[in-house]
Design a protein around this nucleic acid. Sequence first.
DNA 1: GTCCGCGCCGTTTTT
DNA 2: CGGCGCGGAC
Length: 756
Amino acid sequence: MENLLEQLNPEQRLAAETTEGPVLILAGAGTGKTRAITFRMANLITKGMPAETILAVTFTNKAAEEMQSRVTDLLLRAGVPPERPWISTFHSLCARLLRREAASAGLPKDFAIYDDDDQLAAVKLAMAKLKIDEDGLTPRNVLGRISYAKNHAQTPEQVRAEAFGPDTRKVADIYAGYEQLLKQSNAVDFDDLLLRSARLLREEPQVRERWRKRFAYLHVDEYQDTNRVQYDLLRLLTNERQNVCVVGDEDQSIYRWRGADVSILLSFSQDFPAAKVIRLERNYRSTQTILDAAGAVVANNPDRLGKTLRAQNEAGGRLRYFEARDAQAEAEFVAGELERLLSDDADQTCAVEYRTNFQSRSFEEAFRRRGLRYKLVGGFSFYNRAEVKDALAYVRLALHPEDDVSLLRVLNVPARGIGKTTVDALRDTAQRESLSFWDAMESLMTNPASSRAVAPLRAFRELIVRLAEAYATKEPADYMRFVLEETGYMDMLKDRNTPDDVARIENLEELVRALAEAMDAGETFTDFLDAAALVSDADSFEGKPGVTLITLHSTKGLEFDHVFLTGMEDGICPHSRSLNEEKGIEEERRLVYVGMTRARKTLTLTRAVYRRVFGNEQQMRASLPSRFLSEIPSELVETVRGSMAEIGETRRYEPDPEYSYSAEEFTRRVRGLPTPAQKMAPRRTERSTTPSFGRPAMRRGGQADSMLGTKVRHPEYGVGTVVGVEGDEDDRRVSVSFPGRGTKKFVERYAQLQQV
DNA sequence: GTCCGCGCCGTTTTT
DNA sequence: CGGCGCGGAC
C-alpha cells in the first residue's frame, strides 16, 4: 500500500492517510477526490480495519459501484484480500437499514418503496378522495410541496398551522391523506427512507448504538448537496471517535431545490472543531483555459470559500461559441462537430449538455437523421416502463393487497370490466369507511350499488389471493413468469401484438432475466424491488466512447473529452423559473460551472436565437444570450464561423421572413422579454476577427467625468482616448480621439467600445 | 364498460 | 409535441 500511496499528490495522500478524526476535503472539480477517498478506504483495510466497519455514501448508485470496484482493484494491487466496504447512496443505505430494523421502525419487513410515479399517483388518489380539484393545485405541484415539508420536518398539522391561504390548507389536507395512504399501503417514499431512518436512530438508543458501533469510518461524497435529514443521519451514525470524512465543493452545489443546504458543508469545521481541512486544487482533468473560464463565471457568486484550480494539463485552446438560428440549426452544428471529432478519433467521449430534458429532442432528431449514434442519460429508464411497473405492482399487491397505488395501477389492466364507475364507488367507500381499496371491494361486493361489477371484483380478488399463495412456493423468476401468465398480462400483449406490444413483451422477458441474474448474485426479491425503485437516471451512464446526451444535473461527477454546453439562453440557462430570485441565479451559475468543468479537452458553448415553444411550428420565441456568457472573459473564447453573433454581443433580431410572424407580432414578442434597451446592439454586417467581448463594452452608469481621458478600443478604429461625453444615461454619446484618424463621435450603447 | 378522438395544458433540475 | 381528462358513440 505504501507504494500505491506514492502515486498520490501530497494533498491527496494527506487525505488518504488522515484516517482518524473528522476530515473535510475541499475538492475542486477534477482534482481526484474519488481517487483520494478510494485510496483512503483501501489504506484503512490494509491497515487491518474490517471492511464492514467502513461506510461511504455517494450521490448515485453508479458512483458507488465505481468506487467499490476501484477499492477492490487497489486492494488486489496491494496484495490484500479484497474485502468490500459498505458503499451506497443515502437512500439505499436507509432502505437496507430499515429492512434490517423493520420491527423497531414499525414497518413490515417487506414494505414497498414508492418511486416518483407512485408518489404522484398517491397524491392524485389523495386529492380525488378529498375531491380537491383546484386549478393551481396540480398533483405535481402538491407533491413538491409535500416533499419540501417532509424535508423540513413539517407535519401536515404544522403546514396547516402555518398556512397563508386556502391553497396551503388544502395542501396540508392532501399531505395528511397522502401519509395515511402510504401507511395503509405499507409503503414509504424517497423522503421517508431518510426521515424514518433518522427517527429510528434518534429514538431507539440500542439501534443507534448498534449502527454506530458498526460504522467506525464514515465517508460522504458530494457533501455540498447534503440536506438537513441526511446531515442528521450522519450525526446520528457518528460515534465518539468522530471518524467522519466528507468531500465536497461549494461551487458544485446544485440541489438546493430539493433541500440541499451548502451551509452544512460550510460549517463542518464548527460542527467538528477537531476537523482537519484538506484542499485539493490540482486539476487533472481540464485545460487551464477551461478552468479559467469556469472559474470566472462562478466567481460572480457570493458566499464562496474560494479556490484556485491549477491545471496539470496544458493550457489548451480557447472555448468556442456558436449561435444558431434555432434549435434545429444548433443540433446540426453540434452533430457536425461531433462527427468531425469522432472521425479524428472514435475513442473519445463527448457530451451534449443541456438544462432541461426537452432540449434533447432536437439533438436526437438531428443525430438520428445523420446516423450518429448516441446514448441518452435519463428519460425513460427500464424500471420506469409501464409494463415493468405493472408487473412489479402485481408483485407488491400479492405481498400487501392494501397497497392502493399498486392496486389502482393494475386493477383493470388487462381490462376486466372494472371501469370508472366502479373505481369511483370504490374510492368513495374507501374514503367514507376508512378502508383500503382491497377492503372496500369486499364491502362493495356484499352491498353492491350495481350488481354488474360484483363478478369482476370477485375474480380480481381471487387472482390476487392466488398470486399471494404462489409467492411463497416459487422461485422469484418463475414467480414473475407465473404472475405475467396468471394475470393475463402476457396474453393481452400477445393478442394486441402491435410493434409496441412486441417491445413490451421483450422488456418483460428482460425483467425475468434480470430477476434471475439478481438471484444468482445472491440478492433477495426485496433487494431487487428496492433497486428497481432506487435506480437513478445517472446510473445508466457508461463512460464509453461516443456521444452522450445528458442534463447538466446528471453530469455531476462525470467527465468527457469534449463538451457541448447547449441552450445558453436566458430563460433556459438560467432557467426562467429561477430568474426572480438571486439564490436561484446563483444555483444556475453553479450548474453552468459544473457543466463547464466536465470538459477535458474542448468546451463549446451554443445557443439558439429562436426556439419554439412546445414544439409548436407557429410560435417561435426570440431569446437573449445567457447572462453567464458575458461572465466569461472574452479572450478565452472564439466565435465559430457561421455563428449569428459573437459571445457577449447582444443584438436585436429583426423579423425574419423564414418565420411566420407579422412584424407587429414579432416586435411584441421581443419586447415582451425582459430586455433592457441599453443591452440592444444593432445588427452588424461585418464581423470583427478580434476576440469577442465578454464583458460589457464600457461600464455604464458611471460618472461621465470619470470616463474622460480613459482609453477605449473600437473594432474598426483601434485604441483611442475619450475626449468628450454628452447626453444622458440611456442615450449617451462619446467622443473619442484616435491617433492619426481624428475624433469620432459614437452613441455609446451602439458602439462596440471596450475599455482598455 | 370500453374505445376513441378532441382539446387543453404545460415543460427545471432527481434520489 | 405528448400526456391527460373528458365527452360521446357503441
